[in-house]
Design a protein around this nucleic acid. Sequence first.
DNA 1: CTGGATCCTCAGGGATACTG
DNA 2: CAGTATCCCTGAGGATCCAG
Lengths: 118, 118
Amino acid sequence: MDISNVKDHSTCTPKDLLAVKDALEVLSGKWKLPILIALLNGAKRFKEIAREVPGISDRMLSKELKELESHQLVIRKVIDAFPPVVEYSTTDHTMSLHSVIGALKDWGYHHRKHIMGF
Amino acid sequence: MDISNVKDHSTCTPKDLLAVKDALEVLSGKWKLPILIALLNGAKRFKEIAREVPGISDRMLSKELKELESHQLVIRKVIDAFPPVVEYSTTDHTMSLHSVIGALKDWGYHHRKHIMGF
DNA sequence: CTGGATCCTCAGGGATACTG
DNA sequence: CAGTATCCCTGAGGATCCAG
């Protein structure tokens, strides 16, 4: 991927802004990134994700997973059995999010230190 | 089958998740990043920012700027005159956001290509 | 020009109960 | 277990008017 123009901050074009907005929209909401982070550690079932994303309700988890699937960020695999087993996993496309998550994580730590006055 | 195709990517600890959540909270909302992007191109006045962030209302711009200031992400400089002149600029701390914005921008482009099917 | 004050809408999200 | 169906409420954000 061409990131050659990243360094030129003085020309963050309207198109670049659009790209950022696109990303924000897809990743918007309180839960999408936490869910994806949980799944990046390995495929998981519904209840497992719920356990790994503290505070999320079944309703929201269901909704968010559907949205993520529609964006091709997770894969839903149903195993016909009883009781039902559904396994969620990441996609190649999810992997491209690593730099985003990494940047947010680093900045989160940085910001906390900065505000706390260290 | 194998729920354990855990390739052990940079595993995110609960603390890391917290950091991501911190970042998301500070940058949450529809306008904060677009505003910061506008300011990264140079200090600007209220109306100039409004012009560079399409769709934002004066009310939201005012609110978001206050919040950003409280997080030390923008500096507000009043020039006593008539008509009033207020200049907003970034801080050192804002600069640390470059990697976040860069990652989001790159991923936005990438995602669009991916969804559009190239 | 730079916003504050008000009012209002709507969608994100919580709580609870229920189903195959 | 893996969700759906309802109900409800809060708060982000829009519209408009007003003031220094």
